[in-house]
Computed example of a mutant assay.
Amino acid sequence: MKVGLLFGSFNPIHIGHLIVANFMATNTDLDAVWLVVSPQNPFKPSNTLLHEFDRLHMVSLAIGDNPRLRVSNIEFSMPRPSYTIDTLTYLQERYPSYEFVLIMGEDNLPLFPKWKNADRILEYHRVYVYPRSGSITTELPVMPNMRFVKAPVLDISATFIRKCIKEEKSIQYIVPDAVAEYIKVHKLYQ
């Protein structure tokens, strides 16, 4: 089985995440995409993050019954901050018959060489890169295990969504209805 891994804080998950995940699951050679909720990204401050179980639940609500998408809390029991190479290594040991592919936005390419063991990621795993609005073409050479996928480009960010919520503006159609309801009922991001 060939599984794409879309890592993220998902703070909150929005339609941009879902469109990329579903596109990768249905328009590439991947059998499924797992949305891996990261408790703490080494490059982002954790003080703005909602509790990981709230974020995990919202991802579960968002993907619903889509058989090609799955939410994963694999990093919840791992040391923090989470490093992609460690998660990939753990998953490969746990599921030896699976091939894991890293899915990442083009905006992450400039920082990719600074990732822990980035060279090992490319040596042992494929990386599917999708375009991001406003991404600056990087100086990185095309790498053997890196594939650029022409997925839809949406200019939506979780930061924008959190700002809308604080300002009591509508987030309808930007997040799935079930996620919007969960945020409203639990008074999140206010």
Rank of each mutant, 00 (worst) to 15 (best):
V37Y: 02
K2C: 10
D65K: 15
R70D: 12
L122Q: 07
N22F: 08
G8P: 01
G4Q: 02
V153F: 13
Q40M: 14
W34K: 03
Y173M: 10
E106N: 07
E139S: 11
G134M: 11
D54A: 08
P152F: 13
L30I: 02
R147P: 00
P79D: 03
Y182W: 05
T28C: 03
F10A: 07
T26Q: 15
T48K: 09
S170P: 06
S72R: 06
V175W: 00
Q92S: 15
I174C: 13
R55Q: 13
D86E: 15
Y98E: 04
E99T: 15
S38L: 08
K187R: 11
R70F: 08
N47Q: 14
K116Q: 13
A118K: 02
L30F: 02
T159K: 11
G16R: 02
I136T: 09
E168W: 10
F160K: 11
M143A: 11
I165S: 04
E75W: 06
A21C: 13
N27G: 08
R126N: 07
K163G: 03
D177W: 08
F160C: 08
V59M: 09
T48H: 10
F10C: 01
F100V: 03
M146L: 13
T89K: 15
P113E: 07
N73Y: 05
H51Q: 11
G134Q: 10
R132K: 13
M143G: 02
L91R: 08
G105W: 03
H125V: 02
N108K: 08
H57V: 02
K2L: 13
Y128I: 00
I13Y: 05
L61V: 11
L49V: 06
I74D: 11
I13K: 01
D155P: 03
N47A: 05
N117W: 09
A21R: 00
A25V: 07
M104R: 00
L88D: 02
Y173I: 09
N41P: 08
S72C: 14
I174A: 10
G64T: 03
I13R: 01
T159D: 06
V101E: 00
F10Q: 00
D31G: 14
R70W: 06
T137A: 15
H51I: 05
V71A: 15
K169T: 10
L188N: 08
P152I: 11
S72T: 10
P79V: 12
R94D: 05
K114I: 04
V142D: 01
P96E: 11
A62M: 12
P67D: 08
I13N: 02
I161W: 09
T28R: 01
A32C: 09
V142G: 00
R55M: 04
V59R: 02
K150G: 09
K187T: 09
